[in-house]
Amino acid sequence: MTIAINQLSKEFDGFQALKKINLQVREGEFIAILGPSGCGKTTLLRLLAGFLSPSEGEIVIGNNAVGNPQQTLPPEHRNIGMVFQSFALWPHLNVQEHIRFPLMHHRFVRKEIKKNQHERINEVLKMVDLEAFAERMPNELSGGQKQRVALARAIAPQPELLLMDEPLSNLDAELRMEMRSEIQALHQLTKATIVYVTHDQGEALAMANRIVVMNQGEIEQIGTPSDIYTKPVSPFVARFVGKANLVEGVWNEKHFVPSLASDIRWPDTGVVSAMKEQNIYPVRPEQFRLSKENESGSGLPGLITSVQFQGKEIHYTLEVADQTWAVHTDVSQRFSLGEAVYIHLSVPRNTVTKNHHHQAI
């Protein structure tokens, strides 16, 4: 199921929640809508579902125009499945009854599935690993099992479009990681088009084919997880996805000169032109390394203000001049709270230079 969103806007009592959104979703694609609270991502999902009508623009799902300011097709007339943040299970129905319900009432269910409901219920129970829980009531299930029931109910009628609104945010951290893999596996099995709303960059990076980063009702960037992470087009994207340090300075041909050290040159590692125009060099926390001595004179002095041990790596916060930077290192080198260190850009040797002498860092 393809989706075309053209010049879509939504206004609530004078507040512009969405501003002229344009987005094309390919058939079978897994799209993550990523952004902070209040950025418009849930409004966009509710417009796709048919719970809201556009103020401007249009939504086309498949070959059907389903939403514009004049006419909005209600949710039950769209071939969609929906998974909510709150699970939204019915307390009086057991697990298999939750799966049977859309098979009986979803208007797009194929005749052979309706005819063979029992087989489809068993097939879906197997998909979500709930065969042993078919007779359980919602109050007898864990959070992860409830979420599996919600997923099972959504995929049972084989909708062409699955809409997911922060479905993992009510689960604990370990379970969220597990459910990511399960949702990816379901995507492979069902081949449905998925639009997945989240504020969690880790979820979006881990699961999606493409990510749509939203901010204040507008799309900041659309791209693959790799593009979004390695080539952010704006300071907002750089900070929100991967928590980049935005180092200010001057771009000069293929080099960047940090304003904190006019004699240091950092190479262009693929920074996009929009960031260069703002004279910013985005550096991910793992792209920095620390040393006790100023090797080759290519380091910037900093003071460690926070140390967080994370198992395979250590997360440092540093005060650099009047700025706060984040640096993630492996555990092989340890630095202490309050220690004065030097910060180096980790790039191939012979590329970061001081005084144009091309010394290795």
Rank of each mutant, 00 (worst) to 15 (best):
V237P: 09
L161E: 07
L93W: 00
T224Y: 06
H77S: 10
G299S: 10
D263E: 15
K191C: 07
F288S: 10
N79D: 15
P138M: 02
I361K: 13
A244P: 04
H118L: 13
A32F: 00
K126M: 09
P91F: 01
D172Y: 04
M275W: 01
S169C: 14
R265G: 13
T305H: 08
L48P: 07
Q184T: 12
D200Y: 00
K312C: 06
V25Q: 01
S262P: 04
E160C: 11
Q308S: 07
R180W: 13
I228K: 01
E220V: 13
H77R: 12
T2Q: 06
L260G: 10
D268H: 03
W251T: 13
Q221D: 10
L45P: 08
G28H: 06
N209Y: 08
Y229N: 04
L103V: 09
M127G: 04
F133E: 06
V250W: 09
I222G: 06
R107L: 14
Q188N: 13
P301F: 09
E58Y: 08
N350P: 02
T198W: 01
N294T: 11
N79W: 13
E58T: 10
I59H: 07
H187G: 02
A49D: 08
S262T: 05
Q323N: 15
I31Y: 00
P74S: 11
R210K: 15
K19D: 15
S298A: 14
D129P: 12
L103D: 03
T324Q: 10
S298W: 11
R349I: 12
H344K: 11
